[in-house]
Amino acid sequence: MFQKFLTGKTAIVTGSNSGIGLGVAHQLAKAGADLVLNSFTDRDEDHALAEELAKQHGVKVRYIKADMSKGEECRALVEKAGACDILVNNAGIQHVAPIQDFPTEKWDAIIAINLTSSFHTTAAALPMMRKAGWGRIVNIASAHGLTASPFKSAYVAAKHGVVGLTKVTALETAQEKITCNAICPGYVLTPLVEAQIPDTMKEYNMSRDDVIKNVMLQRQPSKEFATVEELGDTTVFLCSDAAAQITGTTISVDGGWTAL
C-alpha cells in the first residue's frame, strides 16, 4: 500500500511482540522504518522475532525489554533506542469486574500500563523529535476511549485518558513538525481474540459465525473484526506527509461502533 517513505526513521512500538503492536510494526517496516520492538519479557523468541522482521522487511529491528508499568523503564526504553522519530504507544492490559469488586492492584496496573506509560514514553521521545525536527506519536486508544461499557472502569478511564493526553500533546507541538493522534479500534482479530472463540461457542452453544456476529461483535455494526494490518496501515498514513495537518484527533477503526 505504501512506498518506503519512512526509510531512515526509527519507530518504537510498545507492546509489540504480538497482536496489534506486532501488526503495526510490520506495516511500519514495510514502509521502510527501522523498529524497536518491546514487551515485558526477555526471551530468545522475542529477539528471534526482531531478527525475523529485519530479514523479512530489510530494515534494522531491535527488541528491548521494558515493564511498561514502571515509569523509569518506559523512559529507559526510549533512551536505549537512541532515536525515536515515530512513537506508537500500544501496550495495554484488561480486567473486567464491577466497580465495587474491582481489585485495587488491577486498577493500578491498568492505569499504569494503558495510560501512564504513554506519558513517560512521550516525555522521553519529544526531545529527540524536536532535535530531529520531525516526529509522529500515535496512541492506540480504543472505542472505549470515546464510549463506555459496564465492568471496564479502569480500561475505559485509561483509554479516555489516552485521548486527553493525545490532545494536550498535539497542542504543545502544534507549531512544530510533530503530530500526535489516537487510533480508536473496536474489536480486532488478534491471536488472543481468536483463542476466545471456541470457548465462547461452547458457552453459548452457537456456531462460530453466530458467536462472532451476535456475541463478540454485538456492538460493532459492520459485524466484522478490524485487522491488525488495517491498524498498521492507519498508523503508517498518520506518519505520511498527507497527514501533516492531522493532529490532536481520534481516528475510529471500529466498524461504526462509535457512530451509534
Score class of each variant (00 low, 15 high):
A50C: 07
L37M: 12
G92Y: 01
G186Q: 07
Q220H: 06
L260S: 08
L165Q: 13
F119V: 14
H160Q: 05
D108R: 04
E45A: 13
K60S: 14
N90M: 00
W257Y: 15
D199W: 02
F102K: 09
H144E: 07
L77T: 08
G135M: 04
Q175D: 15
S142H: 13
L126H: 01
L115H: 03
V168K: 05
K213G: 02
H160T: 08
G15T: 01
A83N: 11
M128Y: 13
I251S: 07
E229T: 15
A112E: 13
D34Y: 03
E79I: 10
L87W: 12
G92P: 02
G186W: 05
V253T: 00
G248S: 09
G133K: 13
A33V: 03
A148T: 11
S149T: 14
F40R: 13
T147E: 08
V211H: 02
K80D: 08
A50L: 08
G145V: 05
A109P: 04
A66Y: 01
N17Q: 14
T200D: 05
T121W: 00
I137F: 13
D46G: 02
A48H: 14
D42L: 07
F5K: 12
Y204K: 13
P127R: 09
E72S: 15
V162R: 02
F5P: 12
R75C: 08
D101Q: 14
T14E: 04
T190C: 10
Q175C: 07
M129D: 00
I110E: 12
T250W: 09
K9A: 01
E230V: 08
T250S: 09
I246Q: 09
D210V: 10
H95F: 15
L22D: 04
M68I: 06
M1E: 14
A132C: 01
S149A: 15
M68Y: 03
I183V: 10
D254I: 11
A112D: 15
I183W: 02
G248C: 07
L77H: 00
G255L: 13
L165D: 07
I99D: 03
A33F: 00
F237M: 08
Y63V: 05
P150L: 07
A66R: 00
L87Q: 09
T227R: 10
W257C: 03
L260Q: 14
L6E: 00
D254E: 11
I212S: 01
Q218A: 09
L192C: 01
I111N: 07
Q27G: 02
Q100H: 13
A25D: 06
S69T: 10
A132L: 03
A132I: 05
K152P: 01
A243H: 06
S118N: 12
F102M: 10
A31L: 11
D108L: 01
L171Y: 11
Q3N: 14
A112I: 08
W257V: 09
S222D: 04
K60G: 12
A174L: 14
L77P: 09
Y155M: 11
L231F: 06
L165K: 09
V36M: 05
S18T: 14
T234I: 11
G23N: 00
E176Q: 05
D101K: 14
A81V: 08
P185A: 08
C184D: 05
A143T: 09
Q94R: 10
P221A: 00
P127K: 11
A25V: 02
R136H: 10
